[in-house]
Amino acid sequence: MDPTFLALDALSFVQEFNEANPSRNRRALVSQSISEPSRSTCTSMNSMFVDAGCCNSGHTVWGLVLRNLNGETVFSACKREDITAEPLLAEALGVCWALQVATDQGINSVSIYSDAANVVNCINKRSNFAAINLIAQDCRNLMAGLANVSVMFISRTQNCDAHNLVSLAKVVGSRTWLGVAPLVSVYSVSAAVPAAGCNVFSCVPAS
């Protein structure tokens, strides 16, 4: 096996294990029940998918994918910063980044999708987490400047393109592309869903 793919695969399993097994000295974060977006909701607005990752090396990384009303990827970005952040904070910063990108790009109608249920709840004032309350308020301030915007929960399997860009950010740092980012299909081999082809609604096994 390629050592790079093996290392990324191992890192992905470690991240999933840590998310499912929070440290004993931290209060477990319990999210409210959130319904996932319907097909009609996904196709009525531009869709922006965002994900975050925390590295043992002291980096925090993010991935972002923007799709138009036809479900076509028109913009991709990844970002890496030399900061250490807890997963909850990293995910909240990711949503804030996505809203800032939408604002900078002049996109007034957009649905932001994140697979961090607690962050989505906090931004939508359905829960309260001291660690991210200020970031959640920043998100709401950015939302107030957009004509039609929502922040919604989406499952991990539906967020695979943004997740793959998180892995890419660990290697290439902060980059942006018009359309689909190169090499994303290569990194999907080491992601939680092997060799997946992704669309706006779900990940399906590649034929």
Rank of each mutant, 00 (worst) to 15 (best):
P3Y: 08
T4C: 09
F5H: 09
F5Q: 12
F5D: 12
V14S: 07
Q15K: 07
Q15R: 08
E19K: 11
E19Y: 12
A20S: 15
N21C: 06
N21G: 03
P22H: 02
P22R: 00
L29M: 08
L29E: 14
S31L: 01
Q32L: 12
Q32N: 14
E36T: 15
P37Q: 03
R39V: 15
T41I: 13
M45V: 08
N46V: 11
S47H: 02
A52D: 11
G58H: 05
H59M: 06
H59E: 13
V61F: 00
G63C: 07
E72I: 14
A77V: 07
D82S: 10
A85S: 13
E86L: 09
E86H: 06
L89V: 15
E91S: 12
E91W: 02
L93W: 09
W97S: 11
W97I: 07
G106S: 06
I107W: 10
I107L: 11
A117K: 15
N118Y: 01
V119I: 11
V119R: 00
V120M: 04
N124D: 10
K125D: 12
K125R: 13
F129K: 00
A130E: 14
R140K: 02
R140T: 08
L142S: 02
G145H: 00
G145V: 08
G145R: 01
L146C: 04
V151L: 01
S155N: 15
R156F: 02
A162Y: 05
L165P: 11
S167A: 11
A169C: 05
K170C: 09
V171Q: 09
V172N: 00
A181N: 04
P182M: 02
L183K: 09
S185I: 06
V186T: 14
Y187C: 04
S188N: 09
S188H: 05
V193G: 00
P194N: 01
A195H: 12
G197T: 14
G197P: 00
S202Q: 13
